[in-house]
């Protein structure tokens, strides 16, 4: 990738606690090109959301960026003063959160939310802003927007609310939208619609998307590339088609086996025994080694970096050139 829109290098996020710092993200590196959709997948607690919050600069204390850098259009943004960073939010980077029920202020009208946000990012008059708000609502597929704009959040269904949230995130025409589990809190029946709206609108507005989810199925349908996270690290990153068809990392293989089939959902990660370690108890070598069916001595001692394998990268000693046990390309599902 020549000139990525967003470039994250060796990002490290720590939580200051009474008992010393707790490393929540370690050595996270990824790029997103303009207009691209990058999926971030992993179990809850893997650090997906923290990655998104770190990029938009909304980590809650005591969480903070402790190392690495984040660049947007080549400009470093991880060390910007608060006021500078605020100017980027909404205008260059937008974010959509998991729960549309709690993302909107229950005491304000939908229109108040939209107009306020539009005015914050443009020189429009309130009247023009309202017209633009109605246009946006109609764009995200809300029927009778000129009437619904005066409604309160509780008068909208979950799916409609998430459409409003998408409209809000797009008010400032951001180049990058971070969507943190945008469909998890919704009924299965409306999940596909919301993903479709998100995909269509970001295409129309030319925004890149960082799509955070634990649902490999959503990634497979939506994203161009995918990063698999485990215990605060990226274990594999590459084109969706390749990662889904032939995952390299043993953890990713287990994850892919859990993609829901037409017959119904497979219990998530049933294939991998054990659970993700706590942040405070991450093993010395590869974080996945205690659960890994293919772990060998080196995995337990030395931490694997992201190794380039063809077009993609995997953090696994199986792919170290020095040590090459038969490349396992067989597909699990």
């Amino acid at each position: 990738m020549t000139n990525p829109l967003l470039s994250v290098r060796d990002l490290r996020v720590e939580f200051a606690t009474r008992r010393g710092p707790l490393v929540a993200l370690d050595g996270v590196s990824l790029d997103i090109a303009a207009g691209e959709i990058l999926g971030i997948v992993g179990e809850s607690g893997a650090g997906k959301s923290l990655t998104g919050l770190a990029i938009i600069g909304l980590l809650d204390p005591p969480g903070h960026i402790a190392g690495g850098e984040i660049r947007l259009d080549g400009r470093r943004i991880d060390n910007l003063p608060a006021a500078e960073m605020r100017k980027l939010r909404g205008r260059r980077i937008g974010m959509i959160f998991q729960d549309p029920l709690t993302s909107l202020n229950p005491l304000l009208r939908i229109g108040d939310h939209l107009v306020e946000t539009i005015l914050a990012h443009s020189a429009l008059t309130p009247k023009q802003a309202r017209e633009r708000a109605i246009a946006l609502l109609s764009e995200v597929g809300i029927p009778a927007p000129e009437k619904r704009i005066d409604g309160y959040p509780h008068e909208f269904s979950g799916g409609m609310r998430q459409r409003v949230v998408i409209a809000l995130a797009l008010c400032g025409e951001p180049a990058l939208v971070i969507a943190d589990e945008p469909t998890t809190a919704l009924d299965v029946s409306v999940q596909a619609q919301i993903i479709a709206v998100l995909k269509k609108l970001t295409r129309v507005h030319g925004a890149a998307v960082m799509l955070i989810t634990h649902d490999m199925g959503v990634i497979a349908e939506t994203a161009d590339r995918v990063a698999v996270m485990y215990a605060g690290r990226i274990v594999e990153i590459g084109k969706v088609s390749e990662v889904v068809r032939a995952p390299l990392h043993p953890y990713a293989r287990g994850l892919m086996a859990a993609i829901p089939t037409l017959e119904g959902r497979v219990a998530r990660l049933a294939q991998i025994p054990g659970a993700m370690p706590r942040l405070s108890a991450i093993p010395r070598g590869c974080a996945f080694s205690p659960r890994c069916p293919e772990a060998f001595d080196r995995c337990r001692v030395e931490r694997p970096p992201l190794l380039t394998v063809g077009d993609r990268s995997a953090a696994c000693w199986l792919y170290d050139r020095g040590h090459a046990p038969a490349m396992t390309t067989e597909i699990v599902s």
Partner: peptide
Amino acid sequence: ADYIRFARARGLSERAVHFHHALKN
């Protein structure tokens, strides 16, 4: 609350976040 975080993520000023969103609630 989430709506405060979302308000920040939309780039609203601290003033708007604090006094328009947080104070009322």
